[in-house]
């Protein structure tokens, strides 16, 4: 396959950035999207150009490090798929592909397609945990958990923190990310003592980071590679409102 790539290039936070066009030849349909970019970068290095910087690590869809907006869709149009697991067989020969970084003020561009997502860590710091120091835990069987609750908690807990939800949201909201963690812990007995304080602290931190508010458009869940459901946000709202009643 031969492709035309329009890639966002930005040398650093101070640079305004621009789209740059590259041609890539002899792309195999079995390549992953990132392998296609590897091929481009190998060429750029040899030609003495600066290769396109992008984040990636596990390349098996679980670490959450990779992510780019491909043809206007976070992680590309293939549903439930991270960028690293997207394969070139889903593109037409001769196609033009636009590639942009996640765009949100709380995710400033570091370089090219690399953005700073440390805001997510700070949201977790605000309360995305159960306060239980190592060594103090009771026996694992001392508190039974309904299977349905454990399963739903797991569904929410599969969030990989990639930030696609923010990238896709017309408001640049981090609600799905924040709600996934709140829901995971809110559904389990272990998460109860800190449930409402957690929701309040995390939501307030989300605001402080400069993310937008949720307007329930559903764009986030549509691009989420793990399919985190939208009702996690309802649960977050419920816990949050409860916190403010007290």
């Amino acid at each position: 396959m031969n492709l035309t790539l329009k890639v966002w290039r930005q040398s650093g936070p101070a640079d305004a950035g621009r789209m740059v066009t590259y041609k890539v030849q002899d792309v195999s349909p079995d390549m992953s999207f990132l392998e296609m970019l590897d091929v481009l970068n190998e060429r750029l290095i040899i030609e003495g150009d600066d290769p396109v910087a992008f984040d990636h690590d596990c390349r098996e869809g679980i670490c959450g490090m990779c992510g780019m907006v491909i043809n206007g869709v976070a992680h590309g149009e293939q549903r439930a798929t991270t960028t690293c697991q997207l394969h070139m067989r889903h593109f037409e020969d001769g196609a033009t592909i636009t590639i942009e970084p996640w765009r949100a003020a709380p995710f400033p561009v570091v370089k090219d397609l690399v953005v700073d997502r440390s805001a997510f860590d700070r949201i977790i710091q605000a309360g995305g945990f159960v306060s239980v120091p190592a060594g103090s835990a009771p026996d694992a069987h001392s508190v039974p958990v309904r299977k349905e609750d454990a399963d739903s908690a797991f569904d929410a807990a599969t969030c990989i923190g990639c930030g696609a939800c923010v990238a896709a949201c017309p408001n640049g909201s981090a609600s799905l990310f924040t709600a996934a963690k709140i829901t995971h812990l809110s559904l389990l007995p272990q998460g109860q003592p800190e449930r409402v304080t957690r929701a309040k602290a995390m939501v307030d931190q989300m605001d402080a980071e400069g993310f937008g508010g949720c307007t329930n458009t559903g764009e986030c869940t549509a691009v989420c590679p793990k399919g985190i459901p939208l009702d996690t946000i309802a649960r977050m709202n419920s816990d949050y409102l409860q916190a403010n009643k007290k």
């Binding site: 206007g72 003020a105 400069g210």
Partner: peptide, 20 residues
Amino acid sequence: LARRARQARPVKYVAKKSQA
């Protein structure tokens, strides 16, 4: 909220396609 949303995305996408 709209103003907040605008501030949350100061640089617009060149291409953006809704999935919902």
